[in-house]
Design a protein around this nucleic acid. Structure first.
Lengths: 240, 240
DNA sequence: GAGTGGTCTAGACCACAGA
DNA sequence: CTGTGGTCTAGACCACTCT
């Protein structure tokens, strides 16, 4: 008698069981999963079926497999965030490290209408607002505003320091794992304040990146608006 | 005695045999491949090994599989080009069809230094230059310049009409199949001519998309510079 | 050496398309 | 009905990691 009783292919059902355990936190980022053989026994399917399920999860960056070591839930590292989630690079394709950032303010206030819309929050919710200037290649290049639901990031304001790459912080301190993001790009004119901060003329063209990032279960958790000086950098998009 | 004598996993060797046949033109876009069983017999491997090879090719959009019908070499359709290679969309995520374009010039001239660099051409090669204005939602939105090596596109100038989506033309008339592309995005200021053509003020911010497109074997064949009015549209980038 | 994922095989049955 | 790709199984061996 099979353990899986759902609909559709077995490997999809296995995949969804694994996803549920990751979402629920039973298996947390960095955790070692049971071996294919053990999972097969637990789910009552063959090892090949478990393998196919895990292969699709690895393709979606939910897990990472190491021959001889095992299968692990993906964790956010600064490297992964830089290479996977950060698409600005220099003219020769180099990603400058270390990039620094200057915090210009972290506030906790009532969310605006557009913020509750974008983050699917009820009205009158509170949000954290992070404003910062990010440096690339030693020069201020990105003026960034980040909106986070206060409920999901308790005591964010009490963190002493915020690194350039935030997703590891979300994961480690708040148990929020960013899984995917959608970015909308536009060309805009620099406002006076951001122009001054970036060292360009007011009205100069900036690349605006409007990013909405969500967790594995599809909940939007971060709205990030970045305005970038693209004189010495560009946004890279590979179409394969 | 195995037929495959190369290095590495068998399924990778099978994959590369198939890729070679597609590059060589032995299997052309739209062609039906032999069945998994036939390929397995020909290569002297099991059907499962062929399947794994074909699965990776399908993941890379080189082939497309239809249960009950067979496996086909991918072809360019306007739909595929629109959804896979064209990332501009309206504010609510809609891709307006039909989009039209107004040709402002097709010329054949000696390539500039930067053009030979980008397209890996020898000095003093000739290129076709296509200039056009593309309309989205009824308004001129993109000023585009396309550079093509004249040698690979003989008699391009004698085509009566050019559609909005060009990659099907490249494939059908010139046997050139675009497989992947790299886009670099920047914010720039509109020059006087393009500003007039797009109906914006000179100096208005435009999104510049610098695309280099290549064939399956990695040869760059098209350099495309698009400058887009992003008042009513944005470039969509999904990070998964 | 023990345990892991990676490859490969052979065979079974299912779902779908088309003659 | 035949042939195709899609799923699933059971078992073998290889490559790698760690103890």
């Amino acid at each position: 008698m099979p353990v899986m009783t759902g609909q559709g292919p077995l490997y999809v059902q296995v995949r969804e069981m694994v996803v549920q355990r990751i979402i629920s936190g039973a298996w947390q980022p960095g955790d070692l999963l049971p071996s294919e053989f053990d999972l097969a026994a637990e789910f009552g399917v063959s090892q090949g079926t478990v393998r196919k399920a895990l292969d699709t999860l690895a393709a979606d960056n939910l897990i990472i497999r190491h021959q001889g070591r095992g299968t692990f839930v993906t964790t956010h590292t600064p490297q992964r965030e830089l290479f996977h989630f950060f698409h600005l690079e220099g003219q020769k394709g180099e990603k400058q490290m270390p990039a620094t950032s200057r915090l210009t303010g972290v506030t906790n206030r009532r969310a605006s209408r557009i913020e509750t819309d974008r983050l699917h929050l009820p009205a009158n919710t509170h949000v954290f607002v992070i404003n910062r200037i990010r440096n690339l290649g030693g020069r201020p290049t990105i003026a960034e505003r980040i909106i986070l639901p206060a409920r999901m990031f308790p005591e964010l304001g009490q963190l002493a320091e915020l690194p350039n790459e935030l997703y590891q912080i979300y994961e480690e301190f708040f148990g929020v794992t960013i899984h995917r993001a959608v970015e909308e790009l536009r060309a805009v004119s620099a406002e006076r304040d951001e122009a001054r901060a970036l060292g360009v003329a007011t009205g100069a063209p900036l690349l605006e990146i409007d990013r909405l990032a969500e967790t594995v279960d599809g909940t939007p958790v971060e709205w990030r608006l970045s305005r970038c000086d693209t004189h010495a950098h560009h946004y890279l998009s590979e179409i394969v």
